[in-house]
Design a protein around this nucleic acid. Structure first.
Length: 198
DNA sequence: CAAGAGATCATCT
DNA sequence: GATGATCTCTTGA
């Protein structure tokens, strides 16, 4: 199965965010394999994007985004949940794509255990939820998504999502971001029930 | 149903 | 000392 590589991620963040729809996020834990189709993403673009953490300069937390494309940027939010991002674009051009929702494919039993629920629709339909379901935490920060032994990576199953089925809206939860808050940098698959919010 | 509160901590001022 | 790229549960109509 083809994996997305450096070349895929080292491009315009908006293009990466849009084209990630339909790709499959894979998590390996020992013998277990958990996976899900990406159905919702958001782009955070560089130091001038006021919603991007890196807009307030390079700090310990945001240093991941300043690295090469193809590594994971994971941080804790609100003291409870984690958010998973993949770094994009050239080194020192701090950008990333937030993966916001998955449609569960493999390892659903494991996901149910991790999330303590049996409702398929509630397993990974949000950024915090999918990190719980796939056992992702800050330990994964700055690890590679494209190296050989990666425990977390993305497969390309060559399923094209037609443009007519992709919806663009403004991003969620970034009302503080001034004139950047209304830019359409969120992408999701229309009519997919696993998207976090309509 | 919709709206609101509360949970809890790493990070930055 | 404040606050957030969230989620769940409770309340009340």
């Amino acid at each position: 199965m083809a994996r997305l590589d450096q070349r895929f991620f080292n491009r315009k963040t908006e293009a990466v965010a849009r084209e990630l729809l339909g790709k499959v996020l894979v998590r390996k834990i020992g013998k277990d394999k958990i996976s899900g189709k990406i159905v919702e993403t958001e782009a955070y673009i560089g130091s001038h994007d006021l919603a991007c953490h890196a807009s307030r300069g390079k700090t310990e937390r945001t240093s991941a985004m300043f690295k090469k494309a193809g590594i994971w940027y994971v941080y804790m939010i609100y003291g409870f949940y984690h958010c998973l991002n993949i770094v994009t674009e050239e080194k020192d051009h701090p950008s990333a794509v937030l993966i916001r929702a998955l449609e569960p494919l493999e390892g659903i039993g494991k996901m149910k255990k991790n999330r303590k629920t049996d409702e398929i629709l509630n397993l990974a339909s949000g950024p915090g939820k999918l990190c719980q379901a796939l056992e992702i935490d800050r330990g994964m920060n700055c690890t590679s998504a494209i190296s050989k032994g990666a425990k977390l990576y993305i497969e390309d199953r060559k399923i094209e999502i037609p443009k007519s089925k992709i919806k663009k809206t403004k991003r969620i939860g970034v009302d503080y971001a001034g004139k950047w808050k209304d830019r359409h940098l969120r992408f999701y698959i229309k009519n997919n029930p696993f998207v976090s919010k309509i």
